[in-house]
Design a protein around this nucleic acid. Sequence first.
DNA 1: TTATTTTTTTAGATTTGTCTAAATATTTAG
DNA 2: CTAAATATTTAGACAAATCTAAAAAAATAA
Lengths: 217, 217
Amino acid sequence: MQSFTEENYLKIIYHLSENNDQAVQTNAIAEKMQTKAASVTDMIKKLADKQLIDYKKYQGVRLTDTGKRAAINIVRKHRLWEVFLVEKLNFKWDEVHDIAEELEHINSAELVERLDEFLSFPKNDPHGDPIPDKDGKFDAIPFVKLGKLKAGDQGLIMGVSEHSSAFLKHLEKLGLTLGKTLTLTTITDFDGSVEIIVEGKKISVTREVAKHILIRI
Amino acid sequence: MQSFTEENYLKIIYHLSENNDQAVQTNAIAEKMQTKAASVTDMIKKLADKQLIDYKKYQGVRLTDTGKRAAINIVRKHRLWEVFLVEKLNFKWDEVHDIAEELEHINSAELVERLDEFLSFPKNDPHGDPIPDKDGKFDAIPFVKLGKLKAGDQGLIMGVSEHSSAFLKHLEKLGLTLGKTLTLTTITDFDGSVEIIVEGKKISVTREVAKHILIRI
DNA sequence: TTATTTTTTTAGATTTGTCTAAATATTTAG
DNA sequence: CTAAATATTTAGACAAATCTAAAAAAATAA
Ligand SMILES: [Mn+2]
Ligand SMILES: [Mn+2]
Ligand SMILES: [Mn+2]
Ligand SMILES: [Mn+2]
């Protein structure tokens, strides 16, 4: 079994290598963990000793199969707890992340399976992210970022790539929640902001925001 | 905020002083914490520095008001999570304690209040123990231990004073679960075991078991 | 291809919670 | 009331996770 800290490192390494199979750099981990590179090097050695990552000095790290399985299990728990908090305890989607950061470390396979069942085996969490099944399998639905759409394109909001409370509250206020259909009308060259229509209403969205909205066409 | 370890010490000190207002001894804490007396002395000093306990060398410890409030809040969380596990996730009463030992440290006042509401503000946990409310208040229902009843006495099983899985499974097998009515027919002088009638069936219960069954007459 | 910048690692300390062994205080028994 | 037994504390050490400062390697630029 891993400590909380080890689990957090594994999860962060997993997320950093999720969308590209490069080795993950010490500094990237340090930034996400909000710690110093020297501390990361220490922990990296420990995880390598435990065969949870492959590591060669100065070459960055990669999760081993065992490490990846452990990381995905933590992600699974995180997302299931988020569903629980939103669906059963009526939290809003911007309120659940920090609590799930704690709950994801609770250690009971039986608990996770029963929670999954209690929630009727949800496929996605409140932010649209896929929930891995017991065996770590999940299908990543393909998406395009709103910022990459062209004028006239139409699509469905299926997720976000930024999970801060501030960002999620902002989307909520704009009415840009999961499942909503939108049409892109104009792209402003000047500042990269986009005009969209959602439920008949015209909305302007800055480039920074558009970058983090995931669309299925 | 306290560390997990500090919280566990507070909870144990609370339970050790629950039924008598004596100061709690170092060795008693050490036994419950499954650690050494020297370690307890170290932690005691730390908790005293934080004004969570009153401590004079060689004199044992007492919770301060702040310490007691913190301890009761942990107990509240423990018991609410146990209700959740039994009522919502269909765990048995002998399976929930260890998981609740972890869940009780999750840190979110909002979560606790919403969980309480989700469970319809339960008054007792699956073992009959009272659940303190938000302000730490609860009423301890008076009870007599089965081992102290006299022949002919009748009563209701309202709790247990031993929470090991082995003990709870044993009770379950005997049909001695919360809410059952029983009548004591005979006390055996020889070994202190008692004969009882539950739902028409005659059962013999050893002294050791009878000592841990709480009865309301 | 050298020099500069960036990244990573090492060395040595610190904090938290624990331990063993030894010293000291308190309680119990004779 | 003294001696023995028990309970508690101190001293000194250790493992985990972190830090700062300095050294070393790698990447980038001139
Ligand atoms: Mn999250
Ligand atoms: Mn999420
Ligand atoms: Mn319990
Ligand atoms: Mn209980």
